[in-house]
Amino acid sequence: MTEQPHEGHGQRYPLSMRILHWLRAALILGLLASGLYMTRLPENDLTTSSLLYPNHKQFGILVWLLALIHLGLRWRHGAAIPGAPAHLAPWEKWLSHLVHRLIIMLTLITPVLGYPMSSSFTQSDGVPFFFLSGIPELLPKNNAAFVVFELLHRYSAYALLCCILLHLMGAMKHRLEDREGDADVLRRML
């Protein structure tokens, strides 16, 4: 059974997509915050190595899996997904489309870059995933490769953070400034 969009003022996303949106938002913001925090701690800090890094890794994998589910739901609910509000300027529609696509792309790429970073780190003890024994490390331990993947993972995470900030600023602009018709896009995700 497919979910039907709500009619009326500002069509809403299907319930499954709204739930997934807020779950992904919480997880991604948590990962970004923990990534910023743990990279500022000393490497020999026991909390960093035994708690923060393993949890960052497994929740990163979860975000990657949820991004795949998100793509599946977008494909499944294609016709039920609201289009851009009619009152938006062409540049706003273009920017919104670009930022949404970048967020989707970066939620796939950032964890993928974290995996080879962890796999190539000489002191890594694997990539855990909750109750499973872990994801096998396919890359050889190599400090030079680690440095490259660490840099790529970091810049990808910063790019994701920038896109999220643009997404939030756009939603707040439409919520607080644009009073015409369906421009309040936040209602679509509530």
Rank of each mutant, 00 (worst) to 15 (best):
H97N: 15
E150P: 02
L151Q: 10
V127W: 11
F129W: 06
F129V: 11
A145K: 00
L151C: 08
L168V: 15
H167M: 11
V147K: 12
G134V: 05
E137P: 01
S124L: 05
F130M: 12
I164E: 01
L160F: 11
T110P: 02
S118Q: 14
G126F: 05
L151W: 08
L152D: 07
G114Q: 05
L160W: 03
L151G: 10
Q123C: 03
R101V: 09
L139N: 00
L102K: 06
S124C: 06
F130E: 14
S133F: 10
F129A: 09
H97S: 14
S133Y: 07
H100F: 08
G114Y: 03
L106M: 13
T110S: 15
C162I: 15
V112I: 14
Y155C: 11
Q123I: 09
L161S: 07
H100T: 13
R101Q: 10
F129R: 03
C163V: 05
P116D: 07
I104W: 06
F146V: 00
K141N: 01
L152R: 04
S118P: 04
L106C: 13
Y155M: 12
L165H: 10
P136S: 12
T107L: 13
A144M: 08
M117T: 01
S119Y: 00
P128G: 13
M105G: 13
S124E: 04
A157E: 03
V127Q: 13
A144E: 13
L152P: 02
D125H: 15
L160M: 09
Y155S: 10
P128H: 13
F130A: 13
L160A: 09
F130Q: 13
G114T: 06
V127Y: 09
V147R: 05
A157P: 03
L138Q: 03
L168N: 03
T107N: 12
K141F: 01
V147T: 12
F129M: 09
M105F: 15
L165T: 11
H167G: 04
Y158L: 14
I103R: 01
C162S: 14
E137Y: 03
S120G: 02
G126W: 05
L106W: 04
N143E: 13
V148C: 02
A145D: 04
L132M: 15
N142R: 00
L108P: 09
P116S: 13
A145L: 14
H167D: 09
Y115W: 15
G134N: 05
L168E: 04
E137F: 05
L161G: 12
Q123M: 12
L152A: 14
